[in-house]
Every structure is written in C-alpha cells, then in structure tokens.
Computed example of a mutant assay.
Amino acid sequence: MSLKIYIVEDEPLIVTTIKIALKKNNFEVIGCSGGYVKAIKEIKESQPDLVLLDIQLTGIKDGVHVAQELDVLNINYLFLTSQSDPSTIARVSLTSPLGYIVKPFTEAGLISNIELAKNKINSNQKEFIKIKQDGRTIAINQAHIQYLKAFDNYCYIHTATEKFLVSHTLKHIAEQLNPSRFVQSHRSYWINIDKYRSSSFKHINIDGHDIPLSNTYKDIIMSMINE
C-alpha cells in the first residue's frame, strides 16, 4: 500500500523538506496548506491516508483544532511538534494521533515514523466487523468504534460520526472484536481502550463520553491502560 499524504505546515522550508523526503521514498503528496480552513476543505475532498500535521499554525485555529476535526472524520494523522506550552499539551492529549514527529527531524526519522504509521493503518484496515443495516451489509473499522452498549437483545455500536443498532446481543458482537483493543467496562458496555481519555471512580471517559465503570472490570482496564 502506497500512502497518499497531505501536509499541514505553515513553514515553506519545512514543507519543501518533507516533500523532497517523501518523493525520494515513494510516498505521494496529494496536497498541502498552512491553515485550518484550507486544510479541512482539501482533506475532505482528497481523503488522504495520512496527514502530517504541525501543531503550531498561524491563525485563530491551530493544529489541535485540525486534529479534532480529523478525529471526527476518522482520518489518520501524525503530529509535527516542537516544545509546546502546557495548555497546548493538555489539548493535544485529548486527540488521537498515530504518533509524533519531533522537530527538528532528520529524513530518516521522518520516514521511519511514517512507516510505523503505515503499519498501524494497514493493521487497522484488516480489522472490520460486518453488520446488517437497513438491508445492507456494512463493514465497520474496529479502530473507529468508541464503545458498544447493550439494548435488550440488541446492541448499539458507537463511532465518532455514527450510531448503529445491531440485531445481535452485546456478547455476540464483543466476541468479534480484537481483545487487545476492546474490553468490558460494565455489564452493558464494551469500550475501545485506544479511545481512553480519563477515568473516575465510577466512569471511564472514551472520546469525551463518560461510560459506566464497574469494580468488576476496573483492575483489568487499568492494567491495559498502564501497558
């Protein structure tokens, strides 16, 4: 798989450096921009496999704002980052990048991080579950699932952009999920541990959603988070 890459960076010299390195290593650059509005518009149109995203952009909206939109769009990205202030770091912690490329970077470091991201993308693409919805068969990427919720003998599957009601039990659907990614948090909920944000005594936050957390499953979940 050859990745289609979009660059969001407002320093022309860095953009040129990245483009040269990507071309040398047979990656396709399908666009670039230095600001939020143009980036989001072109990314929606071009649907890249990976976005290289500078955190500190000029303008009202920075790279973290772009990342939040990419999370909703389920588009993969790597942050380009130098040292940031604590408030920016706190905001970054609420997003879901595939990794970080620290500035200043070498060509070897850039390409190795992109190769690691490529492996993650390829792995994620292999993990789909198929459900029936309105007479159609829909394949859902497990990496996009936030959590599952029981509803009598049915089950809701929640992603960042959609909610599916499936005519199977929570247990039946959970058995199809990757056990290294998904874990039960409550008798009525399974969560994607990759979407973990924070936890409290009775809840675990998954991409901004507070999900019930039972004592029965707390130790297992905390162990997975620590790992």
Rank of each mutant, 00 (worst) to 15 (best):
M1W: 05
K4A: 11
K4M: 05
V8W: 03
E9T: 02
E11M: 06
P12E: 01
L13I: 13
L13E: 11
T17L: 13
T17D: 11
I18T: 09
I20Y: 12
A21S: 15
L22N: 11
L22R: 10
K23R: 14
K24R: 14
V29F: 10
V29R: 07
G34Q: 04
Y36C: 07
V37N: 14
K38N: 14
K41F: 09
K41Y: 10
I43K: 08
E45A: 15
S46R: 14
Q47Y: 10
V51D: 04
L53W: 01
Q56C: 13
G59W: 06
I60W: 05
K61L: 13
K61Y: 11
V66E: 00
V66K: 07
Q68N: 15
L70N: 06
L70G: 04
V72D: 04
V72Y: 10
V72C: 07
N74E: 09
I75D: 02
I75W: 02
F79I: 03
L80A: 12
D85Q: 13
P86N: 10
T88W: 01
T88P: 05
A90Q: 09
V92Q: 08
T95P: 05
T95L: 04
P97K: 02
G99P: 06
I101W: 10
F105H: 14
G109Y: 09
S112R: 13
K118V: 06
S123P: 00
K126H: 07
F128H: 14
K130C: 10
T137K: 04
I138K: 08
A139T: 03
I140Q: 01
N141S: 09
Q142R: 00
Y147E: 00
F151Q: 10
Y156R: 03
I157T: 00
T159G: 04
A160K: 06
A160P: 01
E162T: 08
T169E: 03
L170K: 01
L170W: 02
H172E: 14
S180E: 11
S180A: 10
R181L: 04
V183M: 12
Q184G: 14
S185T: 13
H186P: 06
R187E: 08
D194N: 13
K195F: 06
S199E: 11
H203G: 08
D207G: 12
G208F: 01
S214A: 15
N215L: 13
D219I: 07
M222R: 13
S223R: 07
I225M: 06
I225N: 07
